[in-house]
């Protein structure tokens, strides 16, 4: 794409603004802010990636991954403000998921150990884990509010903290995974996944792009499951105090 093409792509922004105005949707300000943010953020990321790929040093890659995980954990931790150490538990969860998935990918030589592969796949894994952590914490909170009496019943009968929360934990883990699983069912039928689209536009063989996309689908499934389960088991002890009473939410 050359500069004129980029400038012409702003026509779409103007169209959205025009429609928002014509129908008095009141979204004009949001549209402008979103477009400006997207432009700036993506260009910054582009230049950073260019720099990191050029450097090609493990330390720089690890630093980049750490920053990505920190940002993701910070975002997800907003859902669990009430929970002690929520941020660190989410950070640890995403880091472990990242290490496990990259361990398999690189250890089994499924993808080459090159920065562009590591960073772009990690981006997808970490972003997805962040969304799962968000969904999980949201659901956990709602379930606890709804089923507090059940938790206290099990505790009152001499059950352990884990026994009292287990059904709710399981329910929340399940619920947080459903959108990921549902979402993958219609993959490709309506919308082509972004990465595949990108590869095809950039001139890759569609079959090659499909193989790569499949890898990503499978990766995201297992990363999502890992995230929900690890986070669930790290988080639940923080919901109770030392007298084994439900304290959070």
């Amino acid at each position: 794409m050359n500069l004129t093409a980029i400038i012409f792509s702003f026509v779409f922004v103007i169209l959205a603004l025009f429609l928002s105005n014509a129908f008095r949707l009141g979204l004009g300000k949001d549209i402008i802010i979103t477009c400006i943010r997207a432009t700036i953020q993506l260009f910054i990321v582009g230049y950073i990636l260019k720099f990191v790929f050029g450097f090609d040093h493990p330390f720089v890659i690890i630093l980049m991954l750490l920053i990505m995980i920190l940002v993701a954990a910070k975002n997800a931790a907003q859902r669990g403000k009430e929970i002690p150490y929520a941020f660190w538990k989410i950070f640890l969860t995403i880091a472990v998921v990242e290490i496990i998935t990259q361990g398999f990918l690189l250890g089994l030589k499924i993808v080459p150990a090159e920065p562009q592969y590591i960073i772009s796949i990690s981006g997808m894994i970490i972003g997805n884990s962040m969304i799962i952590a968000n969904l999980f914490l949201n659901r956990l909170k709602a379930e606890i509010e709804m089923r507090r009496e059940e938790i206290e019943l099990v505790l009152s009968l001499g059950g352990s903290v884990k026994q009292s929360i287990f059904p709710i934990l399981k329910q929340s883990i399940r619920a947080s995974l459903i959108p990921t699983i549902e979402g993958q069912k219609t993959i490709g039928l309506v919308q082509l996944p972004g990465m595949m689209t990108g590869q095809i536009i950039a001139g890759a063989d569609p079959i090659q792009a499909v193989k790569f996309q499949l890898l990503i689908v499978f990766l995201i499934m297992s990363a999502a499951t890992l995230t929900a389960i690890i986070l669930g088991f790290l988080i639940y002890p923080s919901l109770f105090n030392k007298e084994q009473q439900l304290e959070v939410f």
Partner: peptide
């Protein structure tokens, strides 16, 4: 909690 059992006012069920 096993030594001191309680039957709650709301009779909660799982």
């Amino acid at each position: 909690r096993r030594y001191v059992g309680i039957a709650f006012q709301s009779a909660p069920m799982t």
